[in-house]
């Protein structure tokens, strides 16, 4: 399916969707949003790009195999849990440090993990389905 309108619009929309997904993930702790929703939004962006440009173009843009992205996400979530253990607390204990721009804590790393798992898993699925043809 090659459509000039879709292909042109997709480039712009994908960038917007990716930016928006990161915004949604980051603000999730205080406003509606979070890693799960963010990951889904980003995956929607890539799905749009798959429809506009094909699976090969998406793989070229991604550079990393989406399955590795999912694996990296799991590693992030696990690491967020292990930081608590390393600090002498329980597994997955939320730890926070105060920065001038606000608080940063292990739950953010955990949420990033969720984001990456959802993104990687869904994109891997969409690509595999698309490439089967």
């Amino acid at each position: 399916m090659s459509s000039l309108i879709l292909s042109t619009a997709a480039r712009l929309l994908v960038a917007l969707l990716l930016l928006f997904s990161i915004f949604v993930m980051l603000r999730g702790h205080n406003e509606p949003g979070g890693g799960f929703i963010g990951g889904l939004i980003a995956a929607t962006g890539f799905a749009l790009y798959v429809m506009a440009e094909g699976a090969g173009a998406v793989r070229a843009v991604l550079r990393i195999d989406p399955r590795k992205v999912a694996g990296l996400g799991l590693a992030c979530a696990l690491a967020a849990g292990l930081i608590g253990v390393a600090a002498g607390e329980t597994f997955l204990r939320g730890l926070w440090i105060e920065l001038p721009s606000g608080k940063v804590g292990t739950p953010l790393l955990f949420d990033l993990g969720v984001y990456l798992v959802v993104l990687g898993g869904v994109v891997a699925l969409v690509l595999a389905l698309e490439e089967q043809r």
Partner: peptide, 28 residues
Amino acid sequence: EGHGRNVVNVILVDFRALDTLGEITVVA
């Protein structure tokens, strides 16, 4: 405790993070 105002998200990534870890493992 969770340093966040979005209760849903705080539950997901902090209070019940172990459940979420299990869920994202299933997703992957």
